[in-house]
Design a protein around this nucleic acid. Structure first.
Length: 400
DNA sequence: TCTGGGGTCCTAGGACCC
DNA sequence: TCTGGGGTCCTAGGACCC
């Protein structure tokens, strides 16, 4: 691991709410809550003023209203957030070409690959740390100057520790973790401080008597793998030791595109459900095409009245960006789902993405195939009838 | 007060192939 | 007849993150 803390993690403070406050002075210093305003909305971002009342992300909006009735409640304005995000990301890229955005408001930057890389590489650890601190403060000031928004920055020798540092820096702060001090810094922290450990993993670890990161390190590789499975267990053990060699990777291609809608009132009518699926498919395709991609696997997501959520997917013979094909596939999948009692959410997504195909030959094939089936004399089953929860998959592949 | 929307990665079983 | 073993693809679900 490097001896200079030249990886930084930047996290904008209460980003959506802060953008609203920056663009509307009357909101400054007041609680602002951004999220879904409908009956089933949740909080997307709460300003720090609102957090004092106990409001936080993912909280149902109705609860937020009870806790903080005098807040300004706003729906998201994503164009504004995206515009501010682009300004911030551009400022990061001035510091290094190695910028890895994690979301609109968060990114890793590897300063070693930037203009100060040589200086950092040639520096003693102490000099290097001083230089990183100066660069990070300059960055934070630059962001305020260009956007009026504050950011918290963590600097360390790895992504893991930079992320932990930025968490400690919030809000509007800068924290540097000295290379070599990783284990000592992590040891007293609760396991939840490690990225990738959520409520379920925390519970599993607690049942085994492990509550701090030091406990994880002491437990050892074998026990963590037995408890959490191969990949997760091994990853958690490495993190517990402060060990992380993951590079900062810019320009990661999306692996799936999806859209979903939660309805104000559950949908019970099958025809209405099928119409909604068509709309979702059209929206999904718009996003797919905007990204210049096409997809081979169509995924339907259904959340029922009781919040039970299931997915059904079908892999086509080739990638498509045809809304007719994606819509028809999703509708077909919907016919396999029991919707009695009602549906609160529908989603349509596409995975196994490929770069845009000019001719979209596979969509043609899919259309021809459907046409053939329609012409088939009625009453005759096409091929073998599909079992209700097992759509044909291998059969399609064999004809490719 | 019931619980958004957009993603990522992992696991596990069955099909299929050699 | 009590029956391999590995690799890959597909599907479903779950945990997690912002």
């Amino acid at each position: 691991m490097r001896s200079v803390p030249s990886i930084i993690h930047l996290d904008m403070d209460a980003f959506f709410a802060a953008v609203e406050q920056a663009s509307k002075p009357s909101l400054r210093g007041k609680p602002v809550i951004v999220g879904g305003l409908g009956g089933r909305g949740v909080v997307s971002t709460a300003s720090y003023e609102a957090r004092k009342f106990g409001v936080h992300s993912a909280m149902p909006m109705a609860q937020a209203r009870r806790l903080c009735p005098n807040a300004a409640f706003l729906t998201g304005r994503f164009e504004a957030y995206r515009a501010n995000s682009e300004i911030v990301m551009a400022l990061l890229r001035e510091r290094s070409p190695l910028v890895e955005p994690l979301s609109l408001d968060e990114a890793f930057v590897d300063l070693e690959a930037g203009p100060y890389g040589p200086a950092l590489a040639g520096a003693t650890p102490a000099e290097g740390a001083q230089l990183v601190l100066a660069l990070a403060e300059d960055l934070r000031a630059d962001i305020v100057a260009h956007t009026g928004l504050t950011a918290s920055v963590g600097a360390a020798a790895s992504k893991l520790m930079a992320k932990i540092a930025s968490e400690q820096a919030k809000p509007d702060g800068l924290v540097l973790i000295e290379p070599g001090s990783e284990r000592a810094v992590l040891a007293p922290m609760p396991v939840r401080a490690l990225p990738g450990i959520g409520p379920a993993t925390e519970q599993a670890l607690r049942r085994a008597g492990l509550t701090t990161v030091a406990d994880l390190a002491d437990a050892g590789f074998e026990e963590l793998v037995a408890l959490l499975g191969k990949a997760h267990g091994a990853g958690v053990f490495q993190m517990a030791l402060g060990w992380d060699e993951r590079p900062v990777v810019p320009d990661r291609d999306a692996k799936s595109v999806s859209v979903e809608d939660t309805f104000e009132v559950d949908l019970a009518d099958r025809d209405r459900i099928l119409r909604e699926i068509d709309h979702l498919a059209a929206r999904c395709v718009r996003r797919l095409r905007a990204a210049g991609r096409s997809g081979r696997t169509v995924v339907l997501k259904v959340r029922r009245f009781d919040f039970s959520t299931l997915t059904r997917s079908e892999t086509l013979r080739g990638p498509t960006d045809d809304p007719e094909v994606i819509g028809a596939t999703a509708r077909r999948l919907a016919m396999q789902v029991d919707v009695t009692g009602g549906v609160r959410l529908l989603g349509v997504g596409v995975a196994q993405l490929a770069d845009y195909t000019q001719e979209d030959l596979f969509a043609q094939l899919e259309r021809e195939e459907r046409g053939r089936f329609r012409r088939r004399p009625s009453g005759r089953p096409r091929k073998r009838p599909r079992p209700p929860d097992r759509p044909s998959a291998a059969g399609g592949r064999a004809r490719t």
